[in-house]
Amino acid sequence: MKIAFIGLGNMGGGMAANLVRAGHEVHAFDLSPEALSKAAENGCATHSAVPDAVAGADAVVTMLPNGGIVKAVYTADVIGKAPAGALFIDCSTIDLATAREVTQAAIDAGYDMVDAPVSGGIAAANGGTLTFMVGGSEAAFDKARPVLEPMAKAVIRAGDSGAGQVAKMCNNMLLAIHMIGTCEALALADKAGLDPQTFYEISSKSTGYCWSLNDYTPAPGVGAASPADNGYAGGFASALMLKDLRLAMGGAETAGASVPLGEHAAKIYEAFVEAGNGGKDFGAIFTTL
């Protein structure tokens, strides 16, 4: 299959490489010359403009920073430029309204489109073990599944258009709450005289079990290996977590949902990012305790 991949950042670069490994012909675009060079090393054909990348494509996959960019790219450079009948898959994490607006514009122009944000981070993007939360019609989902599977450990249809974005904002709000609680518990254990590794051994096998503790322990030298063991470099940047929390807060306001812990988590990450820590892994909240 000929696949155009637009957006080769920390996540997109690894995702595109996995599509190449699966035997697809991948045509890539990014504004960064370094990202394009790496994509070429990974077997992608590279292009200097989006319309060139999507020309003749069976499917277009995008992984872009925000809703404004997603809308601009699709309306200016993808819709009407990709062949009639091409499938569009947007893996960006964006606001629900924009996701639905862009999808409807694509459908009106005769294309199938799904929103398919991801969970798993950079390591999963490189390893082909992402979880895709897909919003779109059943027919569009069936077309998208074989494109997504080489990049995934799970591909799940969340519902109709926009449902993938709803799943993502709820998942990452929960992740932020879990991470802050995990950091607080590890810090409390240490300050109250309990060895943090001993606490990890106990809680990771008890009701405190959660991904942030068991698989991504935010205390250096404790539990599972994570960015905490590398000065909180790499991983999932706190600025991106704040972005996702803001999307969740906007979604909660629109839906009329009460999310007091989500609001508190957003305030904590906002203060952390404003203090200059946006590039650090989101587990670096531990350092504030």
Rank of each mutant, 00 (worst) to 15 (best):
A86Q: 06
R100C: 05
T254Q: 15
V222T: 13
A257G: 07
G7R: 10
A28P: 00
C91L: 06
V222K: 02
G85H: 01
F199S: 04
I3M: 00
L87D: 08
K143D: 11
D52T: 11
A187M: 07
I89F: 12
S212Q: 03
L247T: 11
A144Y: 11
V78T: 01
A158H: 03
Q165T: 02
Y200A: 03
P146V: 01
G135I: 04
M151G: 05
L31A: 14
G67Y: 09
G68D: 07
A97G: 07
A105C: 01
V60H: 13
G135Y: 14
A106E: 04
L186C: 13
L96W: 12
L31D: 02
D190P: 14
G67D: 06
G13E: 02
M173T: 13
T217Y: 12
A237W: 05
Y269F: 12
S212V: 02
A284M: 10
S48K: 11
A239C: 04
T217F: 12
N171R: 11
K168A: 09
D281K: 05
F282K: 00
T103Y: 12
E41A: 12
L36Q: 02
D215F: 14
E270S: 09
A125F: 03
A53G: 13
A82N: 03
L174F: 01
T93W: 07
D244Q: 12
A99Q: 04
P260D: 03
P51G: 01
H47M: 02
G136D: 08
A124W: 01
A49L: 06
A275W: 11
A257K: 05
A59C: 08
Q104M: 10
G221N: 10
A109G: 12
G279W: 06
G12D: 01
V166S: 03
L174R: 00
I268L: 15
K205E: 14
L8F: 15
A228N: 06
L19M: 15
A106Q: 04
M1A: 13
R100L: 01
A106G: 14
A86F: 08
E41T: 13
A16P: 04
L175P: 00
D160Q: 11
A237R: 14
L240F: 15
L242D: 06
G208P: 04
A116F: 12
T75G: 15
D229I: 06
A187C: 02
V78I: 05
G223H: 04
P146H: 12
A28D: 00
G7K: 15
H178T: 08
K243W: 14
A266R: 15
T103S: 15
P227M: 09
A16N: 09
T217C: 15
Y111D: 07
L242N: 03
P260R: 10
G136I: 00
A4V: 10
V26T: 09
D281C: 10
L64P: 05
D77R: 07
K168Y: 05
M133L: 14
I3T: 09
L194Q: 03
D244E: 12
V20T: 10
M15A: 12
G223K: 04
L36N: 04
S32M: 08
N171A: 13
P227W: 14
V73M: 13
L194R: 02
A284G: 14
G256V: 10
A275H: 14
A57R: 03
A187Q: 13
N42E: 05
D160P: 00
T207P: 00
L36T: 13
D30F: 05
V54C: 08
A39H: 07
G12M: 06
S161W: 09
S32H: 11
H27P: 04
A219E: 09
T131R: 10
S238V: 08
